[in-house]
Amino acid sequence: MPDPRSARIDIGPFHLDPVPDAARWRVAGRDGEDAIEGGWSDWVALAHRVLRADELWRGLEARGDAWDEGFAAGRDPGAVNPYR
C-alpha cells in the first residue's frame, strides 16, 4: 500500500505536493506558478486561520441580516418585530 503522505492533495483551485526528501509540502495554483513551500504544520495553521475568518464573516452577516429584518419590521405598521 503506498504511503498516503506522498500523495498529492487537490483542494479546489490549488494543490499540495510533497517535496521529495523533505518534510515539506509545496502549494501551487492551477497555473503552477508562484509555488510556496511549507511544513505540514504551516498549512494546518493557515487552514485554521481561514476557518476562523470564515466564522467571523458569517457572524457579521448574521447580525446584518437580523438588523435588516428588524428595521423592515419597524417600518411596516402591520408587521410584528420579532426582536422586540
Rank of each mutant, 00 (worst) to 15 (best):
N81S: 05
D76A: 03
G78Y: 15
N81T: 02
L16S: 00
G78N: 13
P18I: 09
G39E: 11
F71R: 15
R26M: 11
Y83P: 09
G78P: 07
R30L: 04
D54T: 01
P18C: 09
D54A: 05
G70E: 13
R49I: 09
E69D: 15
D42C: 03
A62C: 06
A72F: 15
D21S: 09
N81Q: 04
G32P: 02
R75I: 13
G70T: 11
Y83N: 13
E55V: 07
E61P: 01
W43K: 00
R8A: 05
H15Y: 04
W43R: 00
D17S: 07
V50M: 06
A53K: 10
R84G: 15
S6I: 06
D21A: 11
V27D: 08
L56M: 13
S6L: 06
R5S: 11
R5L: 09
A72E: 14
E55T: 12
M1E: 05
A73K: 15
L56N: 13
P77M: 01
W43E: 00
D21Y: 11
W43Y: 01
A72K: 14
D31W: 04
M1I: 04
R5P: 05
R84E: 15
H15Q: 10
G38H: 00
W40E: 04
L46W: 07
P13V: 10
D42I: 01
L56Q: 14
G70M: 14
R63H: 14
I9M: 06
P82G: 15
L16C: 00
H15V: 04
R30V: 06
A62I: 07
A73T: 15
I11P: 02
L46R: 10
D3I: 10
P2K: 10
D76F: 09
E37K: 01
D34A: 10
A28H: 03
W25H: 06
D21W: 11
